[in-house]
């Protein structure tokens, strides 16, 4: 083996380093799904079905990458597949009396079922994976170098978070989405098609969730199987509420969640193995606690779109 690959003994320092590295590696699917969901919810609709979209995107991305030999084509295909699910959700919810939360749960089941059905032949093969960018060449410590092997999608997601944050405040499109989400009546008064805006927002949200799924199958952990998602799509929806519908906070929440997930394995690797169940539950406990602390009975959630069914 290459001697430069041999790890330096970092002792306890390996825990914060692993959490830092884990935050970057694990956060990307959460980031994409939560940004997509953020956009959808800002327009006044909730799509709980992004878990199904994520899993279907993961399968499609892997399958297309395998068949075309190009991982980026796979990412694009995953996004397109995701936007089809978004369109279906938006179209169904455009019908009067149809409940968006229920449609989301239905599409979650439908998406997962279809992904498993068509994904059978792709469990075995090895598809081309996404490349990463090495930013840690300056360091002599292999752990640091590895932690700074970063996938371009991470940067795209981070840039998207900033762009969305800026666009919601400063662009006409952002204003239209926010108005539609806060008050359908006000949007109509401005001459905006409420259903049209929500259709576009849900479709783009689906696209992003599909891309998030392709990150799972094409980069980390980097293969397709039926157990690939451990609820990332559902948790990302939770993170949006946690992040108060602020794209920048979505980014922070995704990083936090990734870091919390890395805690359990990192502690065990330096010999702290007692109570690993609870370290593994840490991300969920942390999210719940922060929700409890930051919510309030009297005032509506700050930043919450007024039309959103879950905050009414």
């Amino acid at each position: 083996m290459d001697p430069s690959q041999v790890a330096t003994d970092l002792g306890w320092w390996s825990v914060p380093l692993a959490m830092f590295a884990g935050a970057i590696r694990v956060s990307t699917p959460f980031l994409f799904v939560s940004l997509g969901e953020c956009l959808t919810e800002k327009s006044g609709r909730i799509n709980l079905g992004l878990e199904g979209t994520l899993v279907f995107g993961a399968m499609t991305g892997y399958a297309v990458s395998y068949m075309t030999g190009s991982a980026w084509t796979g990412v694009l295909a995953a996004g397109i597949a995701g936007s089809l699910f978004g369109m279906l959700h938006a179209a169904l919810c455009s019908l009067p009396k149809v409940n968006d939360i229920a449609v989301g749960i239905a599409l979650m089941l439908f998406g997962v079922g279809l992904a498993f059905f068509f994904g059978k032949p792709f469990i075995q093969p090895t598809a081309p994976r996404l490349p990463s960018i090495s930013l840690g060449e300056w360091s002599d410590i292999s752990q640091v170098r590895v932690a700074l092997e970063i996938n371009p999608l991470f940067f795209i997601g981070a840039a998207l978070a900033v762009a969305m944050w800026w666009a919601f405040r400063n662009t006409r499109a952002g204003l239209i989405v926010r108005t539609t989400g806060d008050s359908a009546a006000a949007a109509r008064a401005l001459g905006v098609s409420v259903l049209g805006v929500r259709f576009v927002a849900t479709t783009i949200g689906g696209f992003m969730a599909g891309v998030g799924g392709s990150f799972l199958s094409l980069y980390y952990p980097g293969s397709w199987n039926e157990g690939l998602s451990s609820g990332q799509g559902l948790m990302a929806v939770a993170l949006v509420i946690f992040a108060r519908w602020n794209p920048l906070l979505c980014f922070v929440a995704a990083l936090l969640f990734g870091a919390a997930g890395a805690l359990g394995p990192a502690l065990q690797s330096i010999g702290v193995s007692q109570g690993y169940h609870f370290f593994n539950a840490a991300p969920y406990v942390l999210t719940l606690l922060i929700m409890i602390v930051s919510s309030s009975k009297v005032r509506a959630l700050r930043g919450a779109p007024g039309e959103l069914s879950i905050v009414k």
């Binding site: 330096t8 590696r25 590895v146 952990p221 690939l228 990332q232 997930g261 394995p265 990192a266 690797s269």
Partner: peptide, 27 residues
Amino acid sequence: QVVFTGEWSMPVREAEATNALIDAGAE
């Protein structure tokens, strides 16, 4: 050095466990 993931199939955590072991010096 052993890391228990707690689940029979949890790909992301298995990848994290592998990375953690390597960071701790496993050859």
